[in-house]
Design a protein around this nucleic acid. Structure first.
Length: 379
DNA sequence: ACTAAAACTGATATTACTTCA
DNA sequence: AATGAAGTAATATCAGTTTTA
């Protein structure tokens, strides 16, 4: 197996990435010239899953513990069996983000790989932390979760899925996160290599981890990079796992909220439907009243009032002393009554003022037909 | 077989930076 | 030299999907 990846390094004849995507960038006197991006790998082993580079990276980490500012990594044991070379960009003093990326690439990859034993720790009885050491990160720099852990060499431990480096889109995330997964994968399946298992293993979070994440989620639904790293370290997880957990947790919250909203809207719909049905019934009563009492519409002015308690329109003549305001004023012989539609379009809103408001309980249980009709004759 | 959850993928928005007119 | 527009890269987040215990 042999993989090569080169950007702009003429000494590496990997032609598939020689040209920049952006034609403009080819014209730029870029700082990358001379030392761009170069990865080369030669593996004689037919089973790439057997690749043990992460452990080597761990050793390298131990040796270079103090070399935090290394901006270039060359990996490889010099043997013919495993060729590794990784030349990365120097730190860009102008662009912090790129500086971060470069710096992170220079971080000891195996910080997450070395100790998988379940040693005790002071963190909630969880295994001893093997996460990324935040103290190694430059102060003030924000680090994305995507590339904060994992070794790029781990990707070569996965023959099934890796090898086709995607360009564009979430290149960096895909690139480093995939490799991060593969690192863990290589770590986890080191015992299963003989089975050729390269499928991803899903880690079930422990109850303690989930509970701690839940508590954190109660405080804030999103994490800044520092919080993410701190949580990851505390829970002995990769920052990517913490990030994914929060993403899924937000999705679950949103889904639940959607269900609640849906239920509420369903109830609203039922209520409105019932009200619509009731109003239709009242309308029929009014029409019946109109036909049964031909003199009714000859009144010069008619005031129909609605009971505030039972919300029905009164249909009987009012006592002479009634002075309530009109809910609906209908001029006699006016086309108003005739203009009441046969079918009331939905939604039908209820009247917002109740002329019986002074004493609504006196007739609240009376049927609509027995209600008093407040008719105020102007003349 | 089903489900919940972990993980992945593609799209999009934002921000910072570089280049160029 | 200053400046704004355009292009690019890095990053975060989300919606949808896949995978797995």
């Amino acid at each position: 197996m042999e993989l090569g990846l080169s950007l702009g390094d003429a000494s590496k004849p990997h032609g598939f990435l020689k040209e920049s995507k952006n034609p403009n960038q080819k014209q730029k006197p870029t700082k990358m010239s001379g030392l761009d991006f170069c990865m080369a790998l030669g593996l004689n082993s037919p089973v790439a899953g057997n690749y043990q580079e992460p452990e080597k990276a761990q050793e390298n980490d131990d040796d270079d513990e103090d070399d935090d500012d290394a901006d270039q990594i060359s990996q490889g044991d010099g043997s013919d069996d495993n060729h590794m070379q990784l030349n990365l960009l120097p730190l860009d003093p102008v662009n912090p983000r790129r500086q971060i990326s470069s710096h992170l690439q220079s971080l000891p990859w195996s910080s997450d790989n070395g100790s998988s034993e379940n040693g005790s720790s002071g963190n909630m009885g969880l295994p001893a932390s093997r996460g990324l050491d935040v103290n190694r990160l430059p102060a003030g720099e924000e680090v994305s979760s995507a590339n904060s852990v994992g070794s790029p060499f781990g990707m070569y431990g996965n023959t099934a899925g890796s090898g086709n480096l995607k360009l564009g889109g979430n290149l960096k995330r895909d690139y480093f996160e995939t490799m991060g997964n593969d690192v863990v994968e290589a770590e986890r399946t080191s015992d299963d290599d003989e089975n050729g298992l390269n499928t991803r293993k899903k880690l079930r979070l422990s109850k303690e981890q989930s509970a701690f994440l839940e508590e954190s989620f109660k405080e804030h639904h999103t994490l800044n990079p520092k919080q993410k790293l701190a949580l990851a370290k505390q829970l002995n997880l990769r920052p990517r796992q913490v990030e994914v957990w929060f993403q899924n947790r937000r999705a679950r919250t949103k889904l639940k909220q959607t269900e609640v909203d849906c239920e509420y809207l369903k109830r609203c719909c039922e209520t409105l439907t019932e009200e619509n049905r009731r109003l239709h019934k009242e309308l029929q009563e009014l029409r019946a009243l109109k036909t049964s009492n031909p003199y009714y519409m000859q009144l010069p002015a008619t005031t129909l009032t609605m009971c505030p308690s039972c919300e029905r329109v009164a249909t009987a003549a009012p006592p002479p002393t009634t002075t309530s305001t009109a809910a609906v004023t209908v001029a006699a012989k006016s086309p108003a009554m005739d203009s009441i539609p046969k079918a009331i379009p939905f939604p039908l809103t209820r009247p917002r003022f109740y002329p019986f408001s002074q004493n609504p309980t006196s007739h609240s249980n009376q049927p609509a037909s027995s209600h008093k009709l407040n008719v105020m004759e102007k003349n």
